[in-house]
Computed example of a mutant assay.
Amino acid sequence: MSLPTTETVFAGSHIDARPTLEAAAFLLDGQSAAIDAVRYATPTLSQGAQQMASAIRAGKSLHYAAAGSSGLMALADASELRGTFGIPTEKIRIHMAGGVPVDGHMPGDTEDDGTAAGQIANEISNGDVVIVLTASGTTPYALAVAHAAQHRGATIIGIANNPGTPLLELADTPVCIPTPPEVVAGSTRLGAGTAQKAALNLMSTLMGVVLGHVYRGEMVNVIADNAKLVQRAIGMVSRITGVSADMAEAAIAQTGGRVKPAILVASGCSPKQALTLLEQHSGQLGPCLSSLSTNRTTTSN
């Protein structure tokens, strides 16, 4: 029986026999090759981003489910969605085999626990999107969650590093990232993990773009909940509208720290008008600003 690619020994690796500096370069080459593999998945990642955005627009939830290193990649991506794009925390669910570790210990046997999916199923609703990750494509925990999601009427985005595996066959959107064998055989926290993190970054960022939470390359739906982000928000409002930093700060204060409506307030709207305009244009800032510009031109004529 042939081994899956993620378990195969990298031919000629012998990283332990190399000088440390040479071994470091060899490791980095492995990471680069893993990132290159993500390019093969960009069509399905784009499709997944659209599905995630549609779920959020419809008031549905995003679920991330994985075990081990894949679970850590899922945790990192899911935990950033509120801060970066303002996705409500109640619309994000993280399901990690054995729970999120708090002491640096991840028991290996939890990935074999398919029964845990029964409890998770109660949190999944029809129309939700469930993002399931497993490097092998065969992890029992991940497959059990995917089956539970299927029965609940959710859309399954399956991410795996081995082609033709059960998760990819089960998923509505199968994302195969064909990473080469690991420099340290079977250590999927290396190349496979890096590729998964890049894939999740790509997909969730595209979701933010589709939802209108990125404008001119800036995160205009950021939750400004610390001093650094408050200053970033002020800078965004000032750059996009051309007003002073003081005027930008005043606009942000009028909108309760929300950047998109603050940009419209700084452009001449009342806070109430800003929210109405954003609703009319599905949260897309560009059309809102174009509408204001058109109205001004019409009024001046």
Rank of each mutant, 00 (worst) to 15 (best):
A33F: 12
L27C: 11
L45K: 06
V38G: 01
A25L: 08
A41N: 08
F26I: 04
L28H: 15
Y40D: 13
T20A: 11
Y40H: 10
E22G: 04
L45R: 08
L45N: 04
D36E: 15
P19G: 02
E22P: 01
R39L: 07
Q31S: 12
L45E: 07
A24V: 15
P19Y: 00
L21K: 02
E22S: 08
D29S: 07
G30Y: 02
G48K: 07
D36H: 12
P43D: 11
S46A: 15
E22M: 05
S32V: 14
S46M: 13
G48D: 10
L27R: 08
P43H: 12
A34R: 06
Q31H: 11
T42A: 06
R39S: 12
P43N: 12
T20V: 12
A41L: 08
L21H: 06
T44V: 12
A37Y: 04
Y40L: 13
R39H: 11
A41E: 05
E22L: 06
A41H: 09
G30W: 07
Q47R: 09
A34N: 08
G48H: 09
L27I: 15
T20M: 09
Q47P: 00
L27A: 09
I35K: 00
G30M: 11
R39A: 12
A37C: 10
A37W: 05
A33R: 15
R39V: 11
A23F: 03
A23V: 05
V38E: 01
A37P: 02
Y40G: 13
L45S: 06
T20E: 03
L27G: 03
G30P: 01
T44C: 03
L27H: 03
T44R: 10
A25W: 00
A24G: 10
L28M: 14
A33N: 15
Q47W: 03
D29N: 11
A23G: 09
T44M: 12
L45Y: 04
P19H: 03
G48W: 08
A37M: 10
A24M: 13
D29F: 02
Q31E: 14
I35A: 02
L21I: 13
R39G: 04
L21T: 12
P43Q: 12
Y40V: 13
D29W: 05
A34T: 06
Q47H: 06
Q31V: 14
A24T: 15
D36A: 15
A24D: 09
A37S: 11
T44H: 09
E22K: 07
T42I: 14
A25E: 09
I35Q: 00
T20N: 00
S32Y: 07
Y40E: 14
F26G: 00
S32K: 13
V38Y: 03
A34K: 07
G48N: 10
P43G: 09
G30H: 09
P43C: 11
P19S: 04
A24W: 06
F26T: 10
P19Q: 03
D29K: 08
D29I: 01
P19K: 01
T42L: 13
L45C: 04
A25N: 01
V38H: 02
A41F: 03
L45I: 08
T20L: 10
P43I: 13
T42F: 07
D36I: 12
L27T: 14
G30N: 11
G30L: 08
Q47S: 09
T44L: 05
S32M: 15
A24P: 00
A37R: 02
L21E: 07
A37G: 02
S32I: 15
L45A: 08
F26P: 01
L27S: 06
A37E: 04
